[in-house]
């Protein structure tokens, strides 16, 4: 056995991969035959991310390898728990990482399971892509409207963005697992509302764009019909699925704003009596949704 050993600084540098080729070869050649320096390597290694805090006691019979009266590596408390290490490796590979959004939602007080379901919504790519595409389209439309000095495009499109995004979120593309979800005990109405929240979150940029494009107009005014329409779509989806109510509301809104424009009273769609109508939709819609979901035990396009 050599009486010379690798200097601790060099050993730590080698462990970090910070030594040059010559020194690395020298260290490695020495390590092969020096248990003392091998132990030094173990000490210099960073703590394993999945190190087992306590290992099971060795229960080997006296005289057997691993028992306290027999020296040797077998039964040493330094042996890693391979099952735990393997589980940790599988966790790393298989278990989806907790996303930033999920962590944020939990911080905001949402139960972890609900946060996971909301955060899982981006996997429903169709709805998110659609929502973002609508937001971008709206931004372009808003810019064109601003250049022309007309708010018509803005008024027509803005309240429909959340409606169409939510309808997309529950179409066949976005909800392909609804049959399986429907047989689970998690309340479907809650799942529906959480998804709505997730999709509306994606549509939120539209609000910001609206504020930027038309700082003088109160964007919140058109938020009211947007929310009312969304609530109506959710409630009516328990009878007709999401797309037919969304299409009908879109059609009615486009005709109403078009008629108002022709009469040169575009803002008439925001008259107090209509605002009251939107508020009623907003209140009644979720109530109907919850009652229907409780009665049917199923919702949306499989409500047959």
């Amino acid at each position: 056995m050599s009486t010379h050993h690798v200097r601790p600084d060099d050993l730590r540098a080698w462990v970090r991969g910070a030594t040059d080729g010559v020194l690395s070869m020298s260290v490695e050649q020495h390590l092969v035959g020096c248990p003392q320096c091998q132990a030094g390597v173990a000490a210099a290694l960073p703590p394993m991310a999945y190190a087992v805090p306590s290992l099971p006691e060795v229960t080997a019979a006296p005289g057997q390898p691993g028992s306290p009266d027999v020296a040797g590596p077998v039964g040493s408390a330094e042996l890693p728990d391979l099952a735990a290490v393997w589980t940790a490796v599988r966790d790393e590979i298989e278990v989806p990482r907790v996303s930033l959004l999920e962590r944020l939602l939990v911080r905001l007080g949402l139960p972890p399971c609900d946060a996971m379901l909301v955060a899982a919504a981006p996997a429903l790519r169709g709805s998110w892509i659609c929502a973002v595409a609508l937001a971008v389209a709206f931004a372009v439309g808003g810019a064109v409207a601003a250049r022309n000095g007309s708010v018509m495009v803005f008024l027509v499109v803005a309240p429909l963005v959340p409606v169409l995004a939510v309808a997309t979120a529950f179409g066949p593309e976005a909800g392909p697992a609804l049959e399986q979800e429907s047989a689970a005990p998690y309340p479907l109405a809650r799942l529906l509302l959480l998804r709505t929240a997730a999709v509306l979150l994606a549509a939120l940029p539209v609000v910001l764009v609206g504020q930027v494009v038309f700082p003088e107009s109160a964007a919140w005014v058109w938020l009211l019909p947007a929310l009312g329409f969304t609530a109506a779509v959710l409630a009516l989806s328990t009878w007709f699925g999401p797309w037919r109510p969304a299409s009908a509301i879109t059609l009615v809104w486009v005709i109403a704003t078009g008629a108002a424009e022709r009469l040169d009273t575009i803002w008439a769609v925001f008259a107090p009596r209509y605002l009251l109508l939107y508020v009623l939709m907003l209140i009644i819609g979720p109530l109907v949704l919850v009652l229907r979901a409780r009665r049917l035990g199923t919702i949306g396009r499989i409500a047959s």
Partner: peptide, 24 residues
């Protein structure tokens, strides 16, 4: 008729269903 949200791995989908089945 099987339907799976696009983008889910096998583990992620079963994990998602487990949440709906109240594995908190």
């Amino acid at each position: 008729e099987l339907g799976f949200p696009r983008g889910f791995s096998a583990f992620a989908f079963v994990n998602y269903m487990a949440v709906l089945k109240e594995w908190a």
